[in-house]
Amino acid sequence: MQAGLEFWAPHVAAIEQESVATAVYAKRHGLALHSLYYWRQKIKAAAAQTADSPEQGSAFVALTMSEPVLAQPSGSCTLVLGPGVRVELPALPAPEWLAALGRAMQGAR
């Protein structure tokens, strides 16, 4: 499906940019009109879903403390990844490791 998206996304963007009727654009480029309508709807739905998802559009995440923070040994690190999921580390991990963990957690949703 990714190959389909890579092919159709530029066409859908061109229709918007040129402000031309979808049928006219399809005929001009020799594209199947029903496929163009299908991919236009699919791409717009994906864009709307991304816009509705605040964690996708922001580089910052709000942090709220639900319980008091207890003093930890110097250099230790505790990550709370969700209800009942805590990771206790002896030291603060590398930023690359934290970024990979964030990407893995997003993929697990």
Rank of each mutant, 00 (worst) to 15 (best):
S58R: 12
A94W: 01
A47P: 00
I15S: 02
S58V: 05
A71Q: 15
S19N: 14
A47Q: 14
S66F: 12
I43V: 08
P93G: 05
H34E: 13
P83F: 09
K27H: 13
Q72I: 05
R103G: 07
R109I: 05
L33R: 09
S74Y: 12
S53A: 02
G4D: 12
E18Q: 14
L70N: 11
A48D: 14
A51R: 15
T78E: 10
P54S: 02
V24H: 04
G30E: 03
E55K: 12
L70R: 15
T22G: 06
P95L: 09
C77K: 01
S53P: 00
T50R: 15
L92C: 11
P95D: 09
I15N: 02
Q56D: 10
V85N: 01
K42Y: 13
I43K: 04
T78Q: 10
A48K: 09
A108Q: 11
M65P: 14
G4S: 09
M65K: 15
D52M: 05
A62E: 11
P90I: 00
A47W: 01
Q56M: 15
A3F: 04
V85M: 07
L101R: 01
A47G: 00
V24M: 04
A32I: 03
A91H: 11
A3H: 14
A94F: 03
A32C: 04
Q56C: 07
Q72K: 08
A9E: 15
E16K: 14
A91I: 00
R28H: 05
Q56W: 14
